[in-house]
């Protein structure tokens, strides 16, 4: 089903039909992504769909090196952006594409959008970031969990008891005060997600609510993706353009976003 990327071909990939579905869940730390991934996975599996989940920095190739680099805080902005892109490419080629070719649903806990936003707020141009990730597959669905910074803050403190160095964007020197830095950093990221929402067809979900309410919305958005048959049945010929759910069809609560 997902056969198109954002403009750059992936060399060396065998031509294959990707019959699975690629669903992306995006949102800041504390927006409830992991909870929604868990609930969605459960729901899809109950319906008989094979689900594989992926997240950033889980590739076998690079995750250790990235952790090492982050500990040292020594890499420059372009270097870090490219390092993350290599890690993402590895997951895409060695995990997501094979799973999609096998007909599984791939649930991605964050995707190129977070990577792009992080690179841009650290000085990359939007154009560069978009082209860099031109090799990424266009997902069948992008759910963006939108939560206010105050909500994110409370969830982060409830979860970790403190604010994470990177999630507060401390490397950007926005403020020496972590609390202040957190708000400013989240605001900067939010601005990037805002312009991406339309070209990348985000389905914005109001994530300021309880996980179950959010999940109800998520189900409504995901449901049509499986309406044409179960994942185990081969799908018909690829339509010329992507008729997939468009940005116009949003969650009922999108108005509050």
């Amino acid at each position: 089903m997902t056969t198109r990327n954002y403009g750059t071909r992936l060399p060396g990939m065998p031509r294959q039909r990707l019959t699975g579905r690629l669903i992306v869940i995006e949102g800041a730390d504390g927006s409830g992504r992991s909870t929604e991934v868990g609930l969605l996975r459960e729901w899809l599996e109950i319906q008989g769909h094979a689900v594989v989940d992926t997240g950033l920095r889980r590739s076998t190739l690079l995750s250790e090196q990235i952790d090492e680099a982050k500990r040292g805080h020594t890499l420059g902005a372009a270097t870090m952006a490219l390092f993350y892109a290599a890690d993402f490419a590895d997951q895409l080629e060695n995990k997501m594409i094979p799973s999609l070719a096998a007909g599984s649903t791939v649930l991605a806990d964050r995707y190129i959008y977070t990577l792009m936003a992080r690179a841009i707020v650290r000085g990359a141009s939007r154009d560069w970031a978009q082209r860099l990730y031109g090799f990424a597959l266009q997902p069948d669905l992008v759910l963006f969990l939108d939560a206010r910074p105050e909500i994110l803050l409370h969830r982060a403190i409830a979860k970790y008891g403190s604010l994470d160095y990177w999630e507060s964007g401390m490397d950007l020197s926005l403020s020496r005060d972590r609390f202040e830095s957190f708000f400013r950093y989240q605001e900067l990221l939010r601005k990037e997600f805002e312009w991406m929402a339309s070209p990348y067809k985000f389905h914005v979900v109001d994530a300021n609510r309880s996980p179950l309410l959010v999940h109800t919305d998520v189900r409504k958005i995901v449901q049509p993706l499986y309406a044409r048959g179960s994942a185990s049945e081969p799908l018909g010929p690829e339509p010329p353009a992507r008729p997939a759910v468009s940005a116009r069809r949003r969650a009922p609560s999108a108005a509050s976003a």
Binding site: P11, G12, L82, A86
Partner: peptide, 24 residues
């Protein structure tokens, strides 16, 4: 060793390395 490298990852890793050398 694990046979994981593709032209894309190979390219991006070298770009990472060059970016580091460039910035440093």
């Amino acid at each position: 060793k694990k046979g994981l490298l593709t032209p894309t990852t190979f390219s991006l890793l070298h770009a990472t390395d060059f970016a580091d050398r460039f910035e440093r």
